[in-house]
Design a binder for these strands. Sequence first.
DNA 1: TAATCATATATCGGATCGATATAGGAGTCA
DNA 2: TGACTCCTATATCGATCCGATATATGATTA
Lengths: 181, 181
Amino acid sequence: MDVRTVCLGVLTLGDATGYEIRKMFEEGPFQYFTDAGFGSIYPALKKLHGEGYVTLHEQAQDSRPDKKVYSITPAGHEAFTAATARAPGADKFRSDFLLAVFFEHFLPPNMIAKAVDERIGWYREKLEHMQSCDRSGWGAGPVFVNQFGQAVYGAAVKFLEENRDSLVESAGDTPKTEAAE
Amino acid sequence: MDVRTVCLGVLTLGDATGYEIRKMFEEGPFQYFTDAGFGSIYPALKKLHGEGYVTLHEQAQDSRPDKKVYSITPAGHEAFTAATARAPGADKFRSDFLLAVFFEHFLPPNMIAKAVDERIGWYREKLEHMQSCDRSGWGAGPVFVNQFGQAVYGAAVKFLEENRDSLVESAGDTPKTEAAE
DNA sequence: TAATCATATATCGGATCGATATAGGAGTCA
DNA sequence: TGACTCCTATATCGATCCGATATATGATTA
């Protein structure tokens, strides 16, 4: 989904600055909707403002640039709803870790073991964060997204933990064969 | 992972044309390593050739452009191994579908039901493709990647099937609350 | 027979990304 | 107490990526 649409999504939940939008994109459910950082967010907000989808309120600050608080407009709300009503694109899952594992025969087993252990920790941390959320007051949609994430990341952790040792043990003597699919 | 590195990865498995590389990126395990299409692949191959990481053999064809077959060089192989030896970046999962579900209160329940049903079908198809692979002759890495995918996509299918009805039933009367995390 | 898909090579305009710039306040640690 | 790191704010820019488009023939399907 393009950055402007996801920014509009954040603003349907309440007014926000570019900096606050980036925080939303880094943590919580929005990290599963977009990857955008400042390089994309500020240009997107500028464009949304130009299109009339958001309004801007600047609050002076003492020793920092003026705080720019964005609010969604009715036109912006309609644009966001129209975007979510369109058939969603394919889910995307991309993993540098799986690429490294796929080519494990090029790497020493200790490096594979380390990579798997770090990825187990990474998934555990993501899973614990999802599990520790207080979902009281949430709608059906956010609850569903949180639980979907728990199911998928839980399966990832479980698989990695259960198969770590057999991968590491066989990684050192796997013949360099081509994978065919 | 950048497009050039993944192209080198394909070429460690055997010589290939740009068109063949794109097919590798669309199907099989490489679809979980990169999203690149022609717009990225041809420029990447051109740059890899300029850097001496690949060589090029052109085969004349009757009524089509000459077939350009790329081969990895020892320098390219070293570059690829070095790239996979670096600490892999975070796994990335992005879903337009989950964004739509998160904001389900903006959509009619029948649209939510349709989106969930289509996504169930999509994950089932991906899962069936992974399961139907003939893994004989594969190394430990490719088998691990295939099984990881099955575990994760299997969990996704299971969750969607088990929770589809309760989402759709509550989607029509969810109060428009803010999700907090 | 027409439409669609496959096989081939590519480019381009627009979007995105990650580093960088500027800068002060708060918290941590030796 | 000072250095370092993190947080809070605004942004830009060069490089990379993306998806549509171009060209064109053969194979397959309805």
